[in-house]
């Protein structure tokens, strides 16, 4: 009993000392905190035989967010009905319709929008969850510049693959020679610039929000960081995810639209030459 009391008091003393060190205003060195958080070296390594796989903080957040999304997807998928739909089915249908309407407003038809939807919606949800995971003190995945760059490369690959799948190789070629064939190099250059701008936008936003949050944590360690964290982690993360999805959809829509423009131009030319004859 006495021993238990002594252990408890010792434990509580250590606990409150730690808590006070954590909450003391100005108790942390801001530069040191940020410098340690932009150190992207692996936390631990998994060894499989001779192969050693380094695991970084971003990889942990990505895997956790993927697991969350899988659970969410299975939960939303269960018990779909045609009549008397439940609340979660209404939510899923609403999400579906929003993305379909978005795709249609960028010049795709319904069939094309339904082909593109699973990819873009997954991309958006994945980015949102992996950013919002910072609320539970895991590092936001997009803080490691490798993550936004790989996501952006995936988005550009998606644009090219979807362009070919929706329009065929010939249609995709037509999208490259809009408005005149002489602009082909610039249209190709577009595919280099798009991933860089997509990646830097995501990285800059998440990283800037993180640094501001660390600053607030140093100056006012109580209450404020958790309120601001809701904005910078959840709301800004959602905004960036929506923008990423939006831009990817609009780029795919652009390919469709450009291809249609070239087709129209060719048809007009043919009509003109027939009139001359």
């Amino acid at each position: 009993m006495v021993v238990g009391k002594a252990v408890l008091s010792g434990f509580s003393r250590i606990f409150f000392n730690r808590l006070w060190e954590h909450l003391k205003p100005g108790g942390r060195d801001l530069g040191e905190t940020i410098r340690s958080s932009i150190d992207f070296s692996p936390i631990w390594t998994i060894r499989v035989g001779k192969l050693s796989i380094p695991v970084t903080g971003a990889m942990v957040s990505l895997v956790v967010s993927a697991l969350i999304l899988i659970v969410l997807g299975v939960w939303l998928r269960r018990g779909l009905r045609k009549h008397k739909i439940s609340g979660k089915q209404a939510l899923a249908e609403k999400l579906y319709l929003v993305v379909i309407n978005l795709s249609e407003s960028f010049g795709m038809n319904r069939r094309q929008a339904e082909t593109v939807l699973p990819w873009t919606l997954t991309l958006g949800l994945y980015i949102f969850v992996s950013n919002a995971i910072a609320v539970v003190q895991l590092p936001a995945a997009a803080m490691n510049p490798a993550v936004p760059f790989s996501l952006a490369l995936f988005a550009v690959a998606l644009i090219i693959v979807m362009g070919i799948r929706l329009l065929g190789l010939k249609g995709f070629w037509y999208s490259l020679i809009d408005p005149i064939p002489g602009l082909l190099p610039f249209n190709l250059l577009d595919y280099l610039i798009k991933p860089v701008s997509l990646a830097l936008r995501l990285f800059g936003n998440v990283f800037g929000g993180f640094i501001l949050l660390q600053f607030v944590k140093t100056v006012v360690p109580l209450i404020f960081p958790s309120i601001l964290g809701l904005w910078f982690d959840v709301a800004a993360g959602l905004l960036q995810a929506v923008i990423f999805m939006y831009l990817t959809t609009s780029y795919i829509g652009e390919v469709v639209e450009k291809s249609n423009n070239t087709l129209e131009r060719i048809a007009q030319k043919r009509q003109l030459s027939e009139e001359k004859v």
């Binding site: 407003s105 701008s197 830097l200």
Partner: peptide, 30 residues
């Protein structure tokens, strides 16, 4: 609604420039 769509896209593009500056200044500092 159509004005709003194009407004959002244009704002995103302008904001990208600002974020480039943010990235540059963060690199400078750290």
């Amino acid at each position: 609604s159509r004005v709003q769509t194009s407004l959002t896209i244009a704002i995103v593009f302008i904001e990208t420039c600002a974020i480039y500056a943010l990235v540059v200044s963060l690199l400078l500092v750290f």
